[in-house]
Simulated scan of single mutants.
Amino acid sequence: MRLHDKIALITGASAGIGRACALRFAAEGARLVLNARQPEPLQALADQIRAAGGEAVVHAADVAGPDTAQVLVDLAKRAFGGLDIAINNAGMLGPGVPAAEFPVDAWRQVMATNLDAAFHAARAQLPALLARGGGSLVFVGTIVGHTVGLPGMAAYASSKAGLIGLSQVIAAEYGARGVRCNVLLPGGTDTEMGRQAAPDEDALDFVRSLHALKRLAGPEEIANAALFLASDEGSFVTGSAMRVDGGVSINRT
């Protein structure tokens, strides 16, 4: 198993890409610290993992909360003895309105959830990774704001693009000490959040058509890419913005 005895922290784990990562990592032997805002689906996921012979503990909280990042790292230390992998996946879209009409309070909420929380997570996670001799830090971003600009997503695109700069600096600062840091850039993915952006079948058909593969990703496909970055298979990959986008960034057909 590729993550045997590794300790992994996953935020936004109750649904979508985060849930798929949790199940995939558990199947590869990781011991998991899981976070999401809603306690019921989070606990159900942990129960499912334990029923299959895995190990998981949970902490339900908003990643934008001032203490959440450190609480999760402390839980990893208390439950399993440390931290080897962090998948910072939690995020939000915000209202789909043009930039000039975007409410300032909504802008700040999106930034707090998608970018500020990632910074606070890194500040808490890096010392724990260093204490174990290094590890893998992954931010889940998006192609929106990197290779694609979509209307109504000013805050989302800006916050997720900021993850790339943060990751590159962390990679440069901590690479010599054994920490790898990367950003995963999914294309259109069949998740609850994805369906917020494309709420009906016509919208989904349009999003599918933007991709070279003419379909959306399953969350499991994005989790497979996260596994590569988290595992020793990605041992020479750091500071990368890794597109897993079905060709949406290059497609013109």
Rank of each mutant, 00 (worst) to 15 (best):
H59M: 09
E55V: 04
Q48M: 02
L45C: 05
G94E: 08
E40H: 04
G53C: 03
H59A: 10
A52H: 08
A46P: 08
A64E: 11
L72N: 02
V63E: 08
L72Y: 00
N89C: 15
E55T: 10
A76S: 14
G54V: 04
D84P: 13
Q48N: 05
A60C: 11
L45M: 08
V58Y: 01
D67I: 05
R78Q: 15
R50G: 01
A44H: 04
T68F: 13
R50N: 05
R78A: 15
D67P: 02
L93E: 13
D84Q: 13
A61M: 09
A60F: 03
P66Y: 00
D84N: 15
A56P: 03
T68Q: 09
R78E: 14
A44T: 12
V63D: 04
K77D: 14
I87Q: 11
A90W: 09
E55F: 02
A64W: 10
Q48E: 12
I85M: 07
A46I: 08
A56Y: 07
A79Y: 08
R78K: 12
D47T: 10
V73H: 03
P41D: 08
G81F: 06
A56E: 06
A61C: 10
Q43C: 07
H59Y: 14
R50Y: 01
D84C: 12
L42P: 01
P66C: 07
A64M: 10
A79C: 10
F80N: 11
V63I: 13
G81M: 13
V73G: 05
G82H: 06
A46E: 06
M92Q: 15
L42Q: 00
Q43I: 04
V57C: 02
A76N: 08
G65L: 03
A76T: 05
A61S: 14
I85K: 01
L42R: 00
R78H: 13
V73W: 00
L75F: 09
V57K: 05
A61T: 02
Q48D: 06
A64S: 15
A79T: 02
P41H: 06
G82W: 03
N89H: 12
E40G: 07
D84K: 11
G94V: 12
H59P: 01
P41I: 00
A51G: 08
A56T: 11
G81S: 13
Q43Y: 04
A51N: 07
P41V: 00
R50W: 01
G91A: 13
N88Y: 13
G91M: 14
L75S: 00
P41Q: 07
G82Q: 09
L45G: 03
L72G: 01
F80S: 07
Q70L: 10
G82P: 13
A46D: 01
Q70A: 09
G54E: 06
I49L: 06
T68V: 11
V63W: 04
T68E: 13
I85Q: 04
I49G: 00
E55I: 04
L45T: 01
I85D: 00
